[in-house]
């Protein structure tokens, strides 16, 4: 009502002749048009919408197929999922079992993985220990063999070897020249060499 007054005031101010006219138009409609058009409109919408959906699918040239009623059921399916409808409830009923099974499988997989990892580590450690032990044992065996070999040698031989070795060492320390007789030969040395000394 307020807007009607506002519009009428505008007309009074800007166009007095137009403001004086009733706001009517000369257009009519067929009898009962709006009653029948309502049904026609709904029918048209149904036809158009059902035309559009299959046409879009048929127009696409590809080898894939879908269940006959898939697209008819899809809106309701989506709606059910969104609104927590029957489908969602059914899924919720199934879900705990699936979840339980999945959880069990996950636990077993985790346990197997843990066993494998720790088992591998343990085996590797054991191998390393064994290798060390073998080395130690081998060394011990070698030392033992040497002792045994030494034990089998005649004492006189050992003493002679020792003395021979000792003699050589003493001689080397006290008179290094004696080790190399050629060093005593000075006949070929120039006299100037001695002048420099």
């Amino acid at each position: 009502m307020e807007r009607e007054e506002e519009i009428q005031n505008e007309l009074n101010q800007w166009a007095p002749l137009l403001a004086a006219l009733p706001r009517a138009h000369p257009f009519n409609v067929p009898a009962n048009y709006f009653t029948s058009s309502e049904q026609q409109l709904m029918q048209k919408v149904r036809e158009t919408v059902s035309e559009i959906v299959p046409l879009k699918i048929q127009d696409i040239d590809h080898p894939f197929e879908h269940p006959a009623t898939y697209f008819d059921e899809l809106p309701a399916t989506i709606l059910s999922k969104i609104k927590g409808g029957p489908l969602e409830r059914r899924k919720q009923d199934i879900f705990p079992i699936v979840r339980f099974i999945k959880r069990e499988v996950r636990l077993i997989a985790a346990a197997v993985a843990a066993i494998l990892v720790f088992g591998t580590i343990a085996v590797l450690q054991q191998i390393a220990i064994n290798n060390n032990q073998q080395l130690t044992t081998q060394k011990s065996i070698d030392e033992s063999n040497l002792i045994l070999q030494v034990a089998e040698v005649d004492e006189e031989v050992i003493v002679n070897l020792f003395l021979e070795d000792q003699t050589l060492d003493n001689a080397t320390i006290s008179d290094p020249v004696s080790t190399d007789p050629s060093l005593l030969d000075v006949t070929d040395i120039d006299d100037e060499y001695f002048d420099d000394i």
């Binding site: 137009l18 006219l21 009517a24 138009h25 000369p26 257009f27 009519n28 409609v29 067929p30």
Partner: peptide
Amino acid sequence: NFINGTAIQLTLQ
């Protein structure tokens, strides 16, 4: 079709 108005209504249109 379905246009029946007074002279003034038609002039306005």
